[in-house]
Simulated scan of single mutants.
Amino acid sequence: MMTETSLTWRQQTVALSVPIECIGEIYFPCARSGASLVTVAKRNHSMPTMLDDDTLAFAHKVFNHCRNGDSAELATLLDAGLPANLLTSTGDSLLMLASYHGRTETTRLLLDHGGDPSLANDRAQTPLAGAVFKGDHAIVELLLEYGAEVDQLPPGGKTALMFAAMFNRTDLLLRLIEAGADSEMRDSEGKTALQLAQAMGATDTAAYLRSVAPRASAQG
């Protein structure tokens, strides 16, 4: 029989129906599909398929800790065995939540605990692409420092450099190229960063990409 786990959360004790170290991924109901609440067990653990209200509330608090940058609270949970790669209903990892909201300290904390910068959400967006979209230089540097794949192209998605090109972020475009990004890569529709920039009216990044395109082609 599985033993319940109790956690003290801001003077409130929350009893979980599963041990904290067993929680793998948490998914929430989708109004569109009517999907059930399920958990995906970590290897070698037996898990129920339904989440009770306390576990659901606990997960929401974890996600909000990441969004709000509550590093001290989150560190306590991670040290107690909370997996660093929990996912929301839309596939956002804890790292995505923290990095997208510009929480540098929390982002580093999650990376130090094994947060995976390669996890893309259901919209095929990676933490690095999200940070580029937000124009957050500190988060971009942090993710690169921890080995985020600069040219990661999730199925149906775009690279971080493509986001920089589309949203006219020339400084980040240059930084990604410096880090080894390939400006000639194509997305699932066959479009390059230059073509995407032109379609978005991103004049500065388009001008730069045009200026380096012949050189890139010659090197290729």
Results as ranks from 00 to 15, higher is better:
residue 150 V to F: 11
residue 150 V to Q: 13
residue 150 V to W: 08
residue 150 V to E: 10
residue 151 D to W: 11
residue 151 D to F: 07
residue 152 Q to I: 04
residue 153 L to F: 10
residue 153 L to Q: 14
residue 153 L to S: 14
residue 153 L to N: 12
residue 154 P to Q: 07
residue 154 P to K: 12
residue 154 P to A: 04
residue 155 P to L: 11
residue 155 P to G: 02
residue 155 P to R: 13
residue 156 G to D: 11
residue 156 G to V: 13
residue 156 G to R: 06
residue 158 K to M: 14
residue 158 K to P: 00
residue 159 T to Y: 07
residue 159 T to P: 02
residue 160 A to L: 05
residue 160 A to S: 15
residue 161 L to K: 00
residue 162 M to T: 03
residue 162 M to P: 08
residue 163 F to D: 03
residue 163 F to G: 00
residue 163 F to N: 07
residue 163 F to T: 00
residue 163 F to I: 02
residue 164 A to D: 08
residue 164 A to G: 07
residue 165 A to M: 04
residue 165 A to L: 04
residue 165 A to V: 01
residue 165 A to D: 02
residue 165 A to I: 03
residue 165 A to R: 03
residue 166 M to R: 12
residue 166 M to D: 04
residue 166 M to Q: 15
residue 167 F to N: 00
residue 167 F to G: 01
residue 167 F to T: 00
residue 167 F to A: 01
residue 168 N to E: 07
residue 169 R to K: 15
residue 169 R to E: 09
residue 170 T to M: 07
residue 170 T to F: 11
residue 170 T to W: 09
residue 170 T to Q: 13
residue 171 D to P: 00
residue 171 D to T: 03
residue 172 L to R: 04
residue 172 L to Y: 06
residue 173 L to I: 02
residue 173 L to K: 01
residue 173 L to N: 03
residue 173 L to H: 04
residue 173 L to P: 08
residue 174 L to T: 11
residue 174 L to H: 15
residue 174 L to Q: 06
residue 175 R to A: 14
residue 175 R to W: 03
residue 175 R to Q: 14
residue 175 R to N: 08
residue 175 R to I: 03
residue 175 R to C: 02
residue 176 L to P: 04
residue 176 L to E: 02
residue 176 L to Q: 05
residue 177 I to K: 13
residue 177 I to E: 10
residue 177 I to G: 08
residue 177 I to W: 02
residue 178 E to L: 05
residue 178 E to A: 15
residue 178 E to M: 02
residue 179 A to L: 06
residue 180 G to F: 09
residue 180 G to L: 02
residue 180 G to M: 14
residue 180 G to A: 06
residue 181 A to W: 05
residue 181 A to S: 15
residue 181 A to F: 08
residue 181 A to D: 03
residue 181 A to T: 08
residue 182 D to K: 06
residue 182 D to W: 03
residue 182 D to M: 06
residue 183 S to R: 01
residue 183 S to W: 00
residue 184 E to V: 04
residue 184 E to A: 09
residue 184 E to S: 14
residue 184 E to N: 02
residue 184 E to D: 05
residue 184 E to R: 13
residue 185 M to W: 01
residue 185 M to R: 14
residue 185 M to V: 04
residue 185 M to Q: 15
residue 186 R to W: 00
residue 187 D to G: 03
residue 187 D to L: 08
residue 188 S to P: 02
residue 188 S to M: 05
residue 188 S to T: 07
residue 188 S to I: 06
residue 189 E to I: 01
residue 189 E to Q: 10
residue 189 E to N: 09
residue 189 E to K: 10
residue 189 E to T: 07
residue 189 E to V: 01
residue 190 G to F: 12
residue 190 G to H: 08
residue 191 K to C: 09
residue 191 K to V: 01
residue 191 K to L: 14
residue 191 K to R: 15
residue 191 K to M: 07
residue 192 T to G: 01
residue 192 T to E: 06
residue 193 A to V: 09
residue 193 A to D: 01
residue 193 A to S: 08
residue 193 A to R: 02
residue 193 A to W: 03
residue 194 L to Y: 04
residue 195 Q to A: 15
residue 195 Q to S: 12
residue 195 Q to V: 06
residue 195 Q to H: 04
residue 196 L to P: 07
residue 196 L to K: 13
residue 196 L to A: 11
residue 197 A to Q: 12
residue 197 A to F: 10
residue 197 A to V: 08
residue 197 A to I: 12
residue 198 Q to R: 15
residue 198 Q to W: 05
